[in-house]
Amino acid sequence: MKLEGKKAIWKDYQKEIADDKYFYVRSCVRQNFFPGSETAFLKILRDELKKDVYEHPCHTTCTGIGYHGDVVPFDTAMTVVARQFALMTESGYENLVPSCITSFGLYTEILETWHHFPETENKIREYLKKATGREFKIPKNLAHASDVIFKFRKEIAAKAKHKLINKNTGESLKVVEHIGCHYSKMFPSKGVGGAEYPYVLTGMIEEWGGEIIDYPERRHCCGFGFRQYLVQANRGYSIACSKKKFDSMEPYKPDMIITNCPGCPMFLDRWQYTIKEMEGKTYGQNGEGIPVFTYEEVAGLVLGYDPWDLGLQMHQTDCEPVLDKMGVGYDKSKKRELIINNE
């Protein structure tokens, strides 16, 4: 692997990311899947980086799941998204930051559609006006929340309490990065580093001391696939996708997986448990799984946040092996207690 080659490609895919005054829109599912992640994002931006982040109480789903699940038509999706833009405009913000990769993909798709077909934009403006009386401005900047953390990766590194380094050996942790499909596969120029060698998570990992693993099935989907996962009979297809990735990354002995999509960490985490229960196969060291994290959780660990405040107790594949390697302290007894309380 020649790093210069990747660097040359990364150079071609730089994107503009606003540096303050964000209108943050949450994901539908992340608060259930990884409940500490969005909270950690807000805490990092507001408390550590002193940024202005606004959330609107009337924000709804973007309909991305329904759109990709074939139950919401594109016109409806565009009108709902236009309403989010209106909320942003009314609140006096211009920089839209979605937490969800599919939202980011859908917003990008809609903005591109309007760019090429202005008559569609006019039609949607009319729909929104008729339905809600609202008007909107196109966001000045659209960046995924992982783009924002990427932008401030150095600032976060400067405040680091822990690094992605094995405290006992001094070696960098080996990290698999998994990018949500809708981040840049549809519009490569809209992702940091493009679609083939995305840099958004790699940049964070490098900056925080980890070592990136580039394994053959890196580009393969986690298997969420919306329509596929939602039907129980199709889950064998979903889990096979994750398994393909695990089989491919296993020889590299990764310490952890880091992701930037709502679905990917869910499936890469839960399916490891399922594969273990179905086939007795595990992919980590010493019969354990490979811990899977969101980028906010990793940023939080680097900044020294308590693992249970980050919601790591909600992971099905235990995170403790990574916490131990990084030297992150945690109260073992509290973990179970928190889970029971949540139940």
Partner: peptide
């Protein structure tokens, strides 16, 4: 890019 010339 997907063929990895200059990368692999």
């Amino acid at each position: 890019e997907e063929y990895g010339y200059g990368v692999y």
